[in-house]
Write a protein that binds this DNA or RNA. Structure first.
Lengths: 103, 103
DNA sequence: CTTATAGTTCGATGTTTCAGAAACTTTGGA
DNA sequence: TCCAAAGTTTCTGAAACATCGAACTATAAG
């Protein structure tokens, strides 16, 4: 039943399967929720997401691209900054994967 | 807020971040649910889990150990066979991770 | 005791990934 | 025009992975 998406899902899980990327993603999710709660759009530029992560620019850039390529986040350039946002569909897919009603 | 578990969770996500392992795990989850629905205990020996996966013994063995090391499944030898079962706590943790109430 | 089954362990090999240094690209001012 | 800010690209080396063949272990059945 799952056959076709397994590859896509595995890709997304792999993207999250690295401490720094997972933290980056969780920071973003949290920001999104804060902003959604306030009724604003949920965007966030890179530097804000680092939250204590001890990695430097090139590595961050690499990780962000990884998340984007896996379809977990969207990015959009705005002036000098890169604005990131979580893809709701990806979040849904991940939730569904672990739900009891998974199949 | 998530700091401490991030590493453990990343490890689990990484373990699932490989198509074959993910499929293996999903097969197991499915079996578990079938068995739970029938009110029986949910165990399953390896060969039954392969379901179309085209990998041979040593690789399977490796993947299973990976899942076990990540704390996603339990294994137990029963005669000639290796019995696998999903760890409910791991499943919960993964669900919680993607829930809106994640933090 | 012999054989078959079900996995495991041990290399070997090729691939992928992570991280940082250095140099580059945009963009927004001074 | 010149500079700083925020990322990006390219390269490189170390570490981690995935897969397989061959040899091994343990158990069950004859």
């Amino acid at each position: 039943m799952d056959r076709p998406d397994v590859k896509r899902l595995a890709r997304q899980l792999k993207a999250l399967g690295h401490p720094n990327r997972l933290q980056l993603f969780l920071n973003l999710v949290e920001e999104s929720q804060l902003d959604l709660a306030k009724g604003r759009t949920h965007d966030c530029f890179l530097a804000k997401l680092l939250g204590g992560l001890d990695i430097n620019a090139p590595t961050v850039s690499h990780h962000v691209k990884e998340l984007a390529d896996a379809g977990l986040i969207d990015t959009e350039r705005q002036g000098k900054q890169l604005i990131c946002s979580v893809r709701p569909d990806a979040l849904h897919a991940l939730r569904a994967l672990f739900e009891p009603t998974g199949t």
